[in-house]
Write a protein that binds this DNA or RNA. Structure first.
Length: 711
DNA sequence: TAGCGGCGTTTTTTT
DNA sequence: AACGCCGCTA
């Protein structure tokens, strides 16, 4: 079953529960749960509880607690002073600066429980997190501390929240509520089309490429800076195209509105516009969500901050949590200074700083402190740990990438032999493809793994093909999906696709435009008729989504086999897609979820059930955010990889690369491997070969790490 | 004019 | 693996 992140409050207030204007419930409903009957015996990792007479062991190592049979959660015993201070903060703005591993999530989880225990309606708590998964996990953990009421908290990402609200209020801002969502590639495609249509591509001097255009426009939306400013700062070589870039941006906005499409940024900017321009909506939403919490606040941008401010306008109950040292999303317009500006946005903010680390041993912490101490700008926190363990991080320099892979495989096996589950070991790297050679080696050693980050399976061409069929059925005007579908047909290229789309969308013929006389005589006429038939069948009946997808697969199959040489291996992804579709009953939710919050595993891993097994974790550092493992390998610690060669000419992005290194190293609980292979084949631009400059700059590297030969 | 296949280049990170 | 560029063919 798809876990839908938000519970919608409107009209759902339950009997016996009246939500008062302060967000508290007037009647506390007696909880029917295990809490009253549990017999507990608490130890470090497990407690035994008894539900209706059946004993059951549950692992609460992350949220160990000692409840009393009748009473409440004993917060004082379970939290340190700083955490307790944040958790029991009730009203007004509050900022939590939480260093890596200091119990940030734990604090949020307990605060949810605390609020609920104080009688706050869980549905009026809005928990905005970086991924849907972390929201779910937090609610789950809160449910275990208190009871099931906690699972009714509203939670998810800014984008999914935007989608939820906009599906309801699209009409208010002049949009159709059956809008489709463009992912990054789709959005760039639109820009490329418009650029050609406006004739900008044949300018005397080179006009920006589609990805650069998207960067500029997106950055402007997310930071509030003008296109001109961003062009001047980031792309001075295109500054003279300013007028046309502005025209293109306007055209792009108009196009999306006309065609009922929103890109990722629109989910935020339209939400902001809705809240800003329609007071009654703002008041209603603000009264619905009386307690707002934002996780990973260091990675939010100005637009998101503004949304939080508007949502909180009626009560100012906002708690944000973050760590400026872990800000790694500046390419999305985030700025670590945002977190420091929070008190300015909300005068009267109180602050808690969490400094005791509960994750890593002191030797690991000493190294990570040394890494971040080289940051140009930071707000000082001094992390300390009381965890036992004297093992220093290892520093290894294998002879080649191959030796690096060998080393990891061997060491992983060793850990497994000593009883560590594979899933408690991770290999982290800067870019998706850095693990390519390792993946081959792992397969040879028969070590199973899941990979996070890099090319996601929803981004694979064949999966996008299938989704495009659903999209044109859902939103007739989705020209990008039309293009994709039409160009599958023999004899149809970009130009013909455009003509057909014009007939469907602009001439108002609708789906019957596919069968118009001009096209039916062409060699693709028959294929078009088949397509029209498919869409009619899809939309006419009350079909299950699953059946729609099956029909699409049947139609698509011959094109699929013709288009991809390796179609046999790609078929797995399509099977996964069908599996996921089975969990949904609405096309809209299926499409939105896949676009906004796709299954996080990459292509080739079966998303969903299959990924639950005990597997080694491979992940980009970005995707490893917020997670931790017993043993962590950091591979490709080579200049040009980390820091990325793209960042080395810009001091600010270089600083961010250092924070990335810091985030990666702070994921480890017991052991950490820094691996810097000698890499052949670098050029003067990438400057591959040497160990990362971030290693050289650590003053006591020799003391803080142990050298180890790769053999 | 449009479609299409071949070839070389290039890969940051993500909602 | 995907994109841009080029030249061949209908």
């Amino acid at each position: 079953m798809p876990l839908l992140p938000f519970h919608d409050l409107q009209g759902q207030s339950e009997k016996n529960e009246e939500v008062l204007s302060n967000g508290l419930l007037s009647n506390k409903v007696p909880i029917s749960g295990w809490r009253e009957e549990m017999v507990y015996s608490c130890c470090c990792a497990k407690i035994q509880r008894e539900t209706k007479g059946k004993p059951e062991m549950i692992d609460v190592s992350k949220d160990t607690f000692e409840g009393t049979v009748t009473g409440c959660v004993d917060y004082q015993k379970l939290l340190n002073t700083a955490q307790l201070n944040a958790v029991t903060h009730l009203n007004g703005p509050h900022l939590v600066i939480a260093g890596a591993g200091t119990g940030k999530t734990r604090t949020l989880v307990f605060r949810v429980a605390y609020l609920v225990e104080q009688g706050v309606d869980p549905r009026s708590i809005l928990l905005l997190t970086f991924t849907r998964k972390s929201a779910q996990e937090m609610m789950h953990r809160a449910s275990r501390i208190l009871d099931n009421r906690c699972s009714r908290v509203s939670g998810g990402t800014f984008h999914s929240f935007g989608n939820l609200i906009l599906r309801k209020y699209a009409g208010t801002i002049g949009y159709s509520n059956s809008f489709t969502i463009l992912d990054r590639t789709d959005a760039e495609e639109v820009l490329a089309m418009l650029r050609t249509e406006l004739g900008f591509h044949q300018a005397k001097t080179r006009f920006p490429r589609k990805d650069a255009l998207m960067n500029v426009i997106s950055r402007s939306v997310n930071t509030g800076a003008s296109l001109a400013e961003i062009l001047a700062r980031q792309y001075p070589q295109y500054a003279h195209h300013e007028d046309n870039v502005c025209k293109l941006a306007e055209e792009y906005a108009r196009y999306k509105l006309n065609k009922s499409m929103m890109d990722y940024d629109d989910l935020l900017s339209n939400l902001k516009r809705l809240l800003e321009e329609y007071e009654s909506v703002r008041i209603r939403l603000s009264n619905t969500y009386r307690y707002i919490m934002v996780d990973e606040y260091q990675d939010t941008n100005r637009l998101q901050a503004k949304i939080v401010q508007l949502l909180a306008s009626e009560h100012r109950n906002v708690m944000v949590v973050g760590d400026d040292s872990q800000s790694i999303y500046s390419f999305r317009g985030a700025n670590f200074r945002n977190i420091m500006d929070f008190p300015k946005l909300f005068p009267g903010t109180t602050v808690t700083t969490l400094e005791q680390n509960y994750r890593s041993t002191q030797p690991i912490l000493s190294l990570t402190n040394a890494i971040i101490s080289n940051a140009r700008e930071k707000y000082s926190k001094k992390l300390f740990s009381n965890l036992p363990g004297r093992q220093k991080p290892w520093y290894v320099r294998p002879k080649s990438q191959f030796h690096q892979a060998e080393l990891v495989c061997r060491q992983v096996r060793e850990f497994v032999r000593n009883g560590t589950p594979l899933s408690d070991i991770a290999v982290l790297f800067r870019s998706g493809w850095h693990s390519n050679d390792l993946e081959v080696e792992l397969a040879a050693h028969r070590i199973e793994f899941v990979k996070y980050g890099g090319l996601k399976f929803v981004e694979a061409a064949h999966v996008k093909d299938v989704l495009a069929f659903l999209r044109v059925g859902f939103n007739l005007k989705d020209a990008i999906a039309w293009r994709r579908v039409l160009m599958l047909l023999d004899g149809v290229g970009g130009a013909t696709a455009n003509r057909i789309i014009r007939s469907i969308v602009d001439n108002g013929h609708g789906y019957d435009g596919l069968a118009s006389g001009t096209f039916s005589k062409k060699k693709y006429g028959e294929a078009l008729a088949g397509l029209r038939d498919l869409i009619h069948r899809m939309n006419a009946l009350e079909l299950d989504l699953k059946d729609e997808v099956r029909m699409i697969m049947d139609f698509y199959n011959p094109y699929f086999e013709g288009k991809y040489e390796d179609f046999e291996s790609r078929r797995n992804d399509l099977a996964s897609l069908v599996q996921i579709a089975e969990r949904y009953d609405s096309v809209e939710k299926f499409l939105s979820d896949l676009t906004i919050e796709p299954p996080e595993a990459s292509r080739g891993n079966f998303p969903g059930e299959a990924s639950r097994g005990d597997r080694l974790v491979l992940s980009t550092i970005h995707s490893a955010k917020g997670l931790e493992w017993e043993h962590v390998f950091l591979i490709h610690l080579v200049d040009g990889c980390l820091p990325s060669s793209y960042s080395v000419f810009n001091p600010e992005s270089l600083e961010e690369e250092r924070r990335l290194f810091y985030v990666a190293a702070t994921r480890a609980r017991k052991s950490l491997y820094l691996i810097a292979p000698r890499i052949e084949g670098g050029n003067e631009y990438t400057s591959y070969g040497g160990p990362s400059r971030f290693l050289f700059e650590i003053r006591d590297l020799e003391k803080l790490t142990q050298r180890r030969s790769a053999q």
